[in-house]
Structure formats: C-alpha cells, structure tokens
C-alpha cells in the first residue's frame, strides 16, 4: 500500500518538474516535438530507475557502514555520470533497437538535475531500496507525462499569434505555469 502511495505521489502530486523544479532544462529545451519529448521521457525513466537502485544500494551497503554518508553528493554524481556512460555502451552492444530510440538522449541526462535530485531525496527521506526504485521510476514517469503534454501544447502554439515579446521562452514558461496550476489540483488525491 505504501508503495502505491509513493508511486502516485511521485508521478502526479510531487511532479518533479511542475512542483519540484528538477530537470527544467530538458523540459524547456527538448519539448518542441512530441516524438523527441517521448524519447527523452523514455530515456529518463530508464536511467532514473537504474540510478535510484544503484545509488541507494551504494548508500546503504558502502557509505553508511563506512560512515561516509556525508560524501553522498560527490559519490552520487560520479556514479550517475559513469552509469549513463555504461548504459549507453551496454545498449549499443546488447539492445541496438532501444539504443536507436533512446541513444541520443542519454548524454543529455548527466546534466539532468532530476536524476541526482531524486537520488539524494531517496536517502534523505530514509527510503529503503525498493521504495527508492519505485520513487525513482515514478518520478521519471511524472517527468515523461509533463514533457509530453508540454510538447503537445507547444506544437499547437506554433500556429498561434503570440505577441512579439512573448515569443520563445516567455510563452513556454506561461504554459508551464498553467500546467503547474492544473497539477496543483491533484494534491487532493492523497490525504
């Protein structure tokens, strides 16, 4: 039951982008087309799930026993960077089909602060390894939902007559603000 609560709250209520502001950069940058947004979303789900598992295993089996938990920021960012490289190489060799679909987005993910943010949040909130994996995976699902909706709206905005000064970044930010208001309405789901 707890696991389901974590999943819903990670994906919808505490949406990584719209309420925690993690991963804003790809959300604004890679959301011009639905197809690229979906690719990015898929890549983030893939990496974030693995990264949550690996970082929480390292935290509980290496850092805590050696009482080095204050080093978690340094260790996590290096683990994530190495992991992204490793996943890229592994996919290229083992699952070329999936690599073709996600490959180009993988290097972008190292700079995605959502991955490090969720990994740090997992250990900060004392989640066990299973809970961390669920939290990581569904946070990424929330990311995918938000970026795909955003891309759908931006494809429509292209045809609209936007005031000169609001073209480009401002109209995208206003759209994000309205989406964020809509997602605030989901807060009543869990009481």
């Amino acid at each position: 039951m707890n696991i389901i609560l974590i999943a819903i709250s990670a994906a919808l209520i505490n949406n990584v982008i719209l309420s925690q502001f993690l991963g804003i950069c790809p959300f604004l940058g890679v959301s011009k087309k639905v197809s690229t947004a979906a690719g990015m979303g898929g890549a983030v789900i893939f990496v974030m799930t693995i990264a949550s598992a690996v970082t929480s295993v390292i935290y509980y089996f290496v850092l805590v026993p050696l009482s080095l938990d204050y080093l978690s920021t340094i260790v996590f960012i290096l683990v994530i960077a190495a992991l992204v490289q490793f996943v890229e190489m592994f996919l290229k060799k083992a699952v070329p089909g999936l690599y073709k679909a996600l490959g180009v987005y993988l290097p972008l993910i190292t700079t995605n602060c959502a991955v490090l943010g969720i990994a740090l949040k997992n250990v900060q909130d004392d989640m066990n390894i299973l809970e961390s994996v669920v939290n990581g995976m569904f946070s990424a699902v929330g990311f995918a939902i938000a970026i795909i909706i955003m891309a759908g709206i931006r494809e429509k905005i292209e045809d609209n007559d936007v005031p000169e000064a609001f073209k480009g970044a401002p109209i995208v930010l206003i759209t994000a603000g309205l989406m964020s208001i809509a997602f605030m309405g989901l807060q009543g789901l869990i009481k």
Partner: peptide, 13 residues
C-alpha cells in the same frame, strides 16, 4: 510553483 513560471515569463517578456 506556478508563480515561479509566471514571474520568470513576464520578466523575460
């Protein structure tokens, strides 16, 4: 959260 997006939008505009 929504206010952050809106304020930045208007500042950039």
């Amino acid at each position: 959260a929504p206010g952050a997006f809106l304020v930045l939008a208007f500042v950039v505009a």
